[in-house]
Design a protein around this nucleic acid. Sequence first.
DNA 1: TCGTTGTTATATCCATGCTATAACACAGAG
DNA 2: CTCTGTGTTATAGCATGGATATAACAACGA
Lengths: 128, 128
Amino acid sequence: MLIEIDFDSSEALYIQLYNQVIKAIAANRLRDGDSLPSVRVMADELGVNMHTVNKAYALLREDGYVNLDRRNGAVVAVRVEDHGAHMESMHDNMEMIIAQAVCKNIELEEMQELVREMYEDYRRLSSL
Amino acid sequence: MLIEIDFDSSEALYIQLYNQVIKAIAANRLRDGDSLPSVRVMADELGVNMHTVNKAYALLREDGYVNLDRRNGAVVAVRVEDHGAHMESMHDNMEMIIAQAVCKNIELEEMQELVREMYEDYRRLSSL
DNA sequence: TCGTTGTTATATCCATGCTATAACACAGAG
DNA sequence: CTCTGTGTTATAGCATGGATATAACAACGA
């Protein structure tokens, strides 16, 4: 199965779906042009409501990961337009992680090594 | 003012307070042994309910940033016990940031440079 | 004793997540 | 044209969690 949902998680179902799709794209299991199951089919597969899937799809489109149209359903189409905006967004998301790491005496080199490993794990998959 | 709360934010008030305290510790504006205002005083200063502050303080204690006792109120006391657990936690928190960066074609070097800048901004403050 | 500390308990209000049912506009297949 | 399957929107109901208000408790210092 491409997408897995944890019903016991405190994370909202539509956020989980949103995240899983992004991870699948990063891991090259979903590529530009691939189409995702329709909201109704995906909802049925996951055992959730149609609107929950629709919410995730709408968010994915808003953030530039898919295109939605009435003919082909949801088609993966990563949109990279504003590099500065992406960096700024990443800065905000990284804020608390860095602060916690500083408090807990985690060295800069450890952090960068972790980032490198995680990043290259994806890149390795992308080049297959 | 040491702590600022944004009432228009979608982030829960107690989470904002929790985060602000951690950032203040990382920035060396709060140091080990410093005491935070009592739950009632802090609630009054921020304009929120006592229970909201209490929730944040309890979470800070649980995560090893302060000690709470009836004499001195909330005292900053960063507890670093399980290095592996902190790294694991950081890994989980970093997961989506990395995946998004890979999707949006942000280079590893850019990420590491950002991490380095943010980290050293804190470290610079810590050594004052 | 009095005041202040963290802590716990109850109750209420509101926003959000999720579901259910229904309907709509649009496009391809027959 | 008709039928089916897209995404999309609307409305409603239910459960959960965040925030509030009020109240009370045990512990410690002045």
